[in-house]
Amino acid sequence: MREAASVKTAWRTKRTPTTLQRTVPKIVVARWMSLTAGAVVLFLIACALVPQWIAPYSPTDMQADRILLPPGSAYWLGTDYFGRDVFSLIVYGARESLFIGFASVLVGGVSGALLGALSGYLGGWVDSVLMRIVDVIMTIPGVLLALAVAAGLGPGLWNIVLAVAIASLPNYARIMRGQILSVKSRPFITASRSIGASELSVFVKHVLPNSLSPLLVMACIGVGTSILTGSGLSFLGLGVLKEIPDWGALLSQGRGYLTVAWWICTFPGMAITLFVLSVNVIGDELRDALDPRKRRE
């Protein structure tokens, strides 16, 4: 999803030569930022997929004779209190972290969009009821909802995903519903319906493509938010203890060493920050690229 998004952006900016000529610096700057962001995201996805090709050491190898070594040529980002290589840990930890991010967005996004689509399409009392439910979920801030779920279900990867997904569901539902309402009333939809197009084909051909872009933008930002929420839960002691910890767990477990061995928590923290920052940059870029009004400009 992420690669697709950045590729799309690049493609769009290339295809608008007039803009390019008028505001060259803008494009260069914009592309510089989103290209860097794209590269970061791609690299981290690679880490999640094939960590064994990237990490120089095993992430679980604990050696008492190499604990708390500062960053250097042998251990690029130093070693932690177990004597594990921090860089390898981050590389391997990417899988878990990105999983939390993407899975919760997928679950929350798909179910939210479905709910919103139903609501917008059917209208009437279904709409009222569904939107009331969405209102209710919105009243409980994401972190609190995640905490409540974790308190009930106990810590667990899927519980974090579920909690974040539930919390983000209203946003997707609303966007989808709003899009559908605005698209539904446009003349060309009425026109295609009048020439006998089925509801489903109208939805697939016209409504969906038009609604997808804001959802994509939200999803990008959502991936970052869920990773942050996950790390917050780790901090509060509701995280998951794994042989290979995710970044949030690394950051929160290493924070006690900040004054003694800053590298243990700083690099995982930077991984989180960089990743969230990158998806946000991409989200922004997508928003600009997909906004019809900006495109006209």
């Binding site: 610096p25 700057v29 930022m33 970052g224 790390s231 901090f235 923290g269 989180i272 920050t273 946000n280």
Partner: peptide, 30 residues
Amino acid sequence: RNKPIDIAVRIVALFGISMPTFWSGILLIL
């Protein structure tokens, strides 16, 4: 818009929303 100052502000703002708050809090304490 799109001047260096804009870029700088946007990056700072992005950092604001991209850092886990417990981490930035501990850094501020230090």
